[in-house]
Each structure stands twice: as structure tokens, then as C-alpha cells.
Write a protein that binds this DNA or RNA. Structure first.
Lengths: 195, 195
DNA sequence: GAACTAAACGGAGAGAGTCTCCGGTTCCAC
DNA sequence: GTGGAACCGGAGACTCTCTCCGTTTAGTTC
């Protein structure tokens, strides 16, 4: 999809980043769609052979496109993440940055919950590509800094700390019958500057 | 170990809970010891056959004592949890309940971290037996209620909410390079009653 | 539109892990 | 001792992951 980016800075631009062949792209898309369904249904340990079967390709094809389970997970979430981005856009110019942040975090938890077990396998890798993580980080940073500049959130809180807390809440709520929104609110209450 | 408890309320006390045979108990203990090591070393997905080998028993023996990976995990943590209990005991009578709670939660996160991946597989089951969860819950409740009665922690916080937050932090810190103590402090700051 | 080639396909199968079944063995009560 | 319940452990069936490689196909060139 975007593996060409890595090459772009190479001294010799020997290869024009030739596009995928039509059949390859078709299979890629189908695998991604099936995997999305399978992961949110059976968690991050869904059978890969099964995904290949449901996508009507051989296991070899699956492994060519996604050499490891991890990469498949990342691809799934990368794709899905675009919708999160869209939701965040209008919030960036909200008149009440604190409320904007709160609303986005609640939406984020809700979205992430769909992938319960998946995020567990996903988030660990803070690897080089990891576009999903970067996008999330930059949105979160934007909203957080605005809220801090408005004096609504304690200034010593970092983005990593905030997102880590959110991920933790998401995961923990997948394992116990607790309302995620309530936890987000509890934490946010604490992160606000006390007047 | 305590599977007799379940029977105890049955109308007919047909079976006196006969103790394990000596060799059975020996194998049980050895499996538990090896499993503890294996899980904290390789995470919750450590090979069960490997554990059986290292304990010098056949796989059949392992599966008789612990029919599922989940049950083995629970047994490991049940056992290990006793040390947590011991640490909590002196804190129960602390003059500063808020500080006592804070210290215990920090210790808890630190302990749980050893089992990183293990807790992920463990905590989901809030099943009937689950003595580990009960013990933790009761300690946490005790410390929390005392802190609340002293007016140091917001009174609307429940034990489940608090422990869920803690579990989440523990897990998330296993996946990202963030200091667990800092997160616990951030959250606790927020849970205190603001003066 | 035919021929060519790089790219992609897919299935056979090796290897690792999980779990079961059951013949043989060991412990303990009497 | 001895009978029998409890326990052991290994063979093996099954599932899942991942690789290798002969075959097929898309896209290009003339």
C-alpha cells in the first residue's frame, strides 16, 4: 500500500513504484475485509488459514501480502483508523478544547472496543512504519495541547501518558463489566486543572 | 485444591472431600512451580507441553490437573497472590488511609507487571471460583472504603472501577514505555477529593 | 492479437502446539 | 499382603502456522 514511501529517499530512484497488479490488489482488499470481520469476531487469534479460506485465496497468498499476523492486524487497524481521523477533524476547532478532548477520547475508547483483543496484539509495536500509531498520536497531541493551552488540563500531562491510560481503560473494560465512559470521565476529572 | 468448596453447599454431603494422593499433590506442586516460571518468562502463551516436560510429567498429567490453560494461569496467580495479601496487611491500619491505598496500588501494579501477558489471559474470567479475584477485591475494598471514610478519595468511586483502572494501567504499561507509578499517581491525583 | 515475462496464485506438506484416550503403575485402606 | 481406586504418561489425532515451488495470469511490447 505505502511501502514505496520507504524507498523514496534512496539516492538512486531506480524503481518507479509500480502499482500492484489488479488481481493482487483485489486479493489484498478481500483479505483485509475478511480479516477485519474475523478479528472483531474471534479476537486477535482468529485462524489465519480460515481467513484465507473465507477470502477464497490460498494461505500462500495471505502470507505474501501479510508475512506475519502482526502486520495483518496493523493493516486492518490502519484502514479502520481513517474513520477516527474523520471524526476528529471538526473537534480540532472547537471553542471548548477541554470538552473536545473529552468527547474524542470517549469516541476513541468506543471505537477501540470493537477490536478488543486485536488492540492487544496491535499496540505493542511502536515500530518504524506504524502509521496507525502516528496518526492517533498526532490527533491526540493536537487536542491535548489545545486543552492545556486553554488551561483546562494539567500542563504536565504528556500525550503518551494520556493515550496509555486510554488504551488501558479500553483493554480493561473488555475484561470486566465496567462502563468505559465512566472510567474516562473519572480519569479526565482528575486530569483537569482543579479550580 | 479447593474444588471441594463448590460441593459443600450441595443438599447431600455424599463425599467427604478426600485429600489428594501424595504423588498427585507432588506433581501438582511441581507443575505449578514450573508454570509460574514459564509464564513470567515467556508470557501467557508458553508451551504447555514444554511445561509438562520441564516438570517431568506427561502431558496427560498436566491436563488432568489443569484442563485448560486458563485454569493453570488462575492457579499460578492464586498462589502468587498470597504474597500480595501479606503486604497489604500492615497497611490496613495505617493512620493515613489515602497514602496506604496509594502505596498498595503502586505495589499491586509492580507485582502484576511481572506477569504482563499472563494477567491478560487471567483477568477476563470473573467465574465462580476465581478466588484470586475475590481476595484482591476484598483488600482493595477495605483500603478504598477507609480512604473514602477519611474524606481523602471521592466517595462515588467503586472498587470495580478502581481495580479496573489499575489493571488497565498495568497492561498498558506492558505495551508502551511509560512509568506505571506515574500513571497511578496521575489517576490517584484525580480520584482525590479536591480541596 | 500473439507472444513474452514478471508477478501473483494456491496447495502440498513440514513442524509446532494442543488435547485425549487408555493400558499400565502406584498408593493407600483394610 | 492385597484389592481397587486414583494416578501416570506416552502415542497419536487434530489444528494451526508458515514455506516452497510448479502453475497460472495480468499487463506490455511489437
Amino acid at each position: 500500500m505505502n511501502e514505496a514511501d520507504a524507498r523514496r529517499t534512496a539516492p538512486e530512484a531506480t524503481r518507479p513504484p509500480r502499482p500492484m497488479r489488479a488481481d493482487a490488489r483485489r486479493n489484498y482488499e478481500r483479505l483485509l475485509a475478511v480479516a477485519t470481520e474475523a478479528f472483531s469476531e474471534h479476537g486477535a487469534n482468529a485462524s489465519l488459514d480460515d481467513i484465507a479460506k473465507r477470502a477464497e485465496v490460498g494461505p500462500g497468498t495471505l502470507y505474501r501480502h501479510f508475512p506475519t499476523r502482526q502486520l495483518l492486524l496493523e493493516a486492518v487497524v490502519d484502514r479502520w483508523l481513517e474513520s477516527i481521523l474523520a471524526e476528529a477533524e471538526p473537534l480540532r476547532e472547537s471553542a471548548d478544547p477541554g470538552e473536545a478532548l473529552a468527547r474524542w477520547l470517549r469516541r476513541l475508547v468506543s471505537h477501540l472496543s470493537v477490536f478488543r483483543g486485536v488492540t492487544a496484539g496491535l499496540l505493542p509495536t511502536d515500530g518504524p512504519k506504524q502509521s496507525a500509531g502516528r496518526v492517533l498520536h498526532s490527533i491526540a497531541e493536537d487536542l491535548l495541547v489545545r486543552a492545556q493551552q486553554a488551561g483546562q488540563i494539567r500542563p504536565d500531562l504528556t500525550v503518551s501518558e494520556m493515550t496509555t491510560l486510554i488504551y488501558g481503560i479500553t483493554w480493561a473494560c473488555g475484561t470486566k463489566p465496567v462502563d468505559p465512559d465512566r472510567l474516562v470521565d473519572l480519569v479526565l476529572d482528575g486530569l483537569r486543572t482543579h479550580g
